[in-house]
């Protein structure tokens, strides 16, 4: 049950996109988002969509799992769509009931806005689906490195993020186990009022917290046993290196941004 949560879950694979440097993918996603917000016409949306579909195809991620990941966002999508649909006054009126009117401009805006959100999410999903959390934090640390000059504890932050990400599946598994154990003693999580259900969670939360603290303690001891002392002078087992494919990816991204901006410039 709990295992079904896809928290931007990593989808193991060996496609070109999987093998890209995590920094390339992080920068690409930023560029992609910028391009997405520059795109304002059907034509530029088409370009963006083609780019996204091409990337998904190359990554060999089953489109089904991307669609499945969207499910929790349906409410936001509908909300955005409906708001845009009714809050646009310009354009020709298509339908009118009571004080609300749907104009052709409104319809276009609604479609474009929800489309933008959909593409935004799919793009970022592609990043987390093709990059392992460890690689992602590695890339982030490397990209944020200049901030060290401003005394931002970049290494410590990325270490914390890394540990947090690493322990999400562990804690989910643990929660599952504790829930099963309490269910075996007759605990009921599925029926009763909201207060009953909240109360039913106590037998799960108490052991979970205890185990989280125990794990943190053990981890700290284990790190100290290995003389861990932070980022100063620390070398990496896996060095990040840009390759030919990274160069090509940057080129493609630059091209995408250029095309979208050019289209916007010509008012398309």
């Amino acid at each position: 049950m709990l295992k079904d949560i896809t928290l931007g879950q990593y989808f193991p694979g060996n496609s070109v996109i999987h093998r890209l440097d995590p920094r390339t993918k992080l920068i690409s996603v930023v560029v992609y988002i910028v391009a997405l917000f520059c795109a304002e016409s059907w034509v530029s949306y088409g370009v963006m969509l083609a780019f996204l579909l091409a990337a998904i195809t190359i990554s060999k991620i089953p489109p089904k799992s991307i669609v499945r990941g969207m499910k929790p966002l349906i409410v936001i999508l509908i909300f955005t769509g409906v708001l845009n649909l009714f809050y646009t006054d310009t354009g020709r009126v298509l339908v009118r009931f009571w004080k609300l009117a749907i104009t052709d401009d409104g319809l276009t805006r609604a479609i474009l806005m929800t489309g933008r959100i959909l593409m935004l999410i799919s793009g970022t999903f592609l990043l987390t689906y093709t990059t392992s959390p460890i690689a992602l934090t590695d890339g982030l640390e490397s990209l944020l490195n200049p901030l060290k000059k401003l005394h931002v504890p970049v290494h410590e932050l990325s270490m914390m993020m890394c540990i947090a990400l690493r322990f999400i599946p562990t804690l989910i598994e643990e929660t599952d186990k504790i829930m099963s154990a309490q269910k075996a003693r007759g605990a009921d999580f599925e029926s009763g009022s909201i207060i009953d259900r909240a109360k039913a969670l106590i037998p799960v939360l108490v052991p979970l917290f205890i185990s989280a603290f125990r794990r943190a303690d053990e981890l700290a001891t284990a790190m100290e046993c290995r003389c861990y002392q932070g980022g100063e002078g620390r070398t990496k087992m896996k060095l990040l290196r840009y390759g030919r494919n990274d160069f090509l990816a940057f080129l493609a991204e630059a091209l995408l941004l250029a095309v979208v901006i050019a289209l916007a410039f010509f008012g398309l």
């Binding site: 504790i178 309490q182 075996a184 003693r185 007759g186 605990a187 106590i202 037998p203 185990s211």
Partner: peptide
């Protein structure tokens, strides 16, 4: 669930009550 009692591995990690008595009484 009640007629077939299941004791998981390392069952001590599911204790949660304030007293031993209350924990045994949970089931």
């Amino acid at each position: 669930r009640f007629r077939v009692g299941l004791v998981f591995q390392y069952p001590e990690y599911q204790l949660f009550e304030e007293t031993v008595y209350k924990d045994i009484a949970f089931g």
